[in-house]
Write a protein that binds this DNA or RNA. Structure first.
Lengths: 166, 166
DNA sequence: GCTGAAATCGCCTAACG
DNA sequence: CGTTAGGCGATTTCAGC
């Protein structure tokens, strides 16, 4: 299984940095039970190996003036690989689209979008997304309220799993 | 509008920390064009005002052994506020559920879930989610591949908007 | 009120055992 | 992986705009 190339200290490092990405290295070292220099070496290794894809401040979208969050389900006319890739590239170019995932089932993609207000989103929806080449159908759902928004993965589930298979 | 209580330097700070949450304060100060002490004070103020909700390392779920990502659309039997809140609380308690958003339209909630493998997710789906009180329907879609996953908000959209209204 | 400058303190990060 | 040590950043203090 992937993840077993990491020892318990590496996993603890990842869990701690997922919970607080701005923690100092000495604090991190203290928490994982080693001294600072090897801790920093591990962090660099984890970054270079791709386990850590970056560090980001989580900003409050609503407080910043992005009042609208929308999930959009998109169906395409052609599911040929070239057409799928072309649509994905468009999503990467649209700043209002924050996430784009290809799905199984009847709908082809789910998009998470954010916008300052409804009219901005509706302009994007009608003039860009629905109007884009190869787009067959778009169904949107407004987020009424957010109940949970945890970044990353549940490390405790991983630990339980590793303990069971040991 | 919210966001206009922030001056251009504050917005630049937020944008920079969203892009790189581990940037040192002196580097941040250099980028936004002020010296380090006032820059640090602004960051603390933004944190306390709730504009910054935290800092998180973005870990690679698949490389860590979480091979399965699923979006689940959940319909409830009762949409009374007490029942909505009860379901939201359940979602907060389930570690496999990373996000839970209440939606308008026919479906009540969308959940983003992550799991080490399909059987773990299916156990959760049948034994926990579908079996939970007040849950009327659950439709799940597996993520085949991810095309875009940008955290946060598009600051350039915000700046364009502010420039237009000035 | 704000910023910037200086000084102290603590952390980062090499090199070596 | 730990220890040491030198340089740099973080953070407080204080003065100036």
């Amino acid at each position: 299984m992937a993840g077993s190339r990491l020892d318990p200290i590496d996993r603890k490092i990842l869990a701690e940095l997922q919970a607080d990405g701005r923690m100092t290295n000495v604090e991190l070292a203290k928490r994982v039970g080693i001294s600072a220099p090897p801790c920093l070496r591990r962090v660099r290794t984890l970054e270079e190996a791709g386990y850590i894809r970056g560090y980001h401040a989580k900003v409050d979208a609503r407080e910043l003036g992005f009042e609208v969050q929308v999930f959009a389900m998109v169906g395409l006319q052609s599911q040929a690989e070239a057409d799928l890739s072309a649509f994905e590239q468009r999503c990467r170019d649209w700043p209002l689209v924050r996430e784009c995932h290809m799905l199984n089932g009847e709908v082809d993609f789910i998009l998470k979008c954010v916008a300052p207000d409804l009219s901005t989103f509706q302009s994007f929806l009608t003039e860009q997304l629905t109007a884009a080449e190869n787009v067959a159908s778009v169904k949107t759902s407004l987020v009424i309220r957010g109940a949970k928004d945890e970044p990353g993965v549940p490390f405790d589930v991983l630990e339980q799993r590793l303990a069971r298979s040991a």
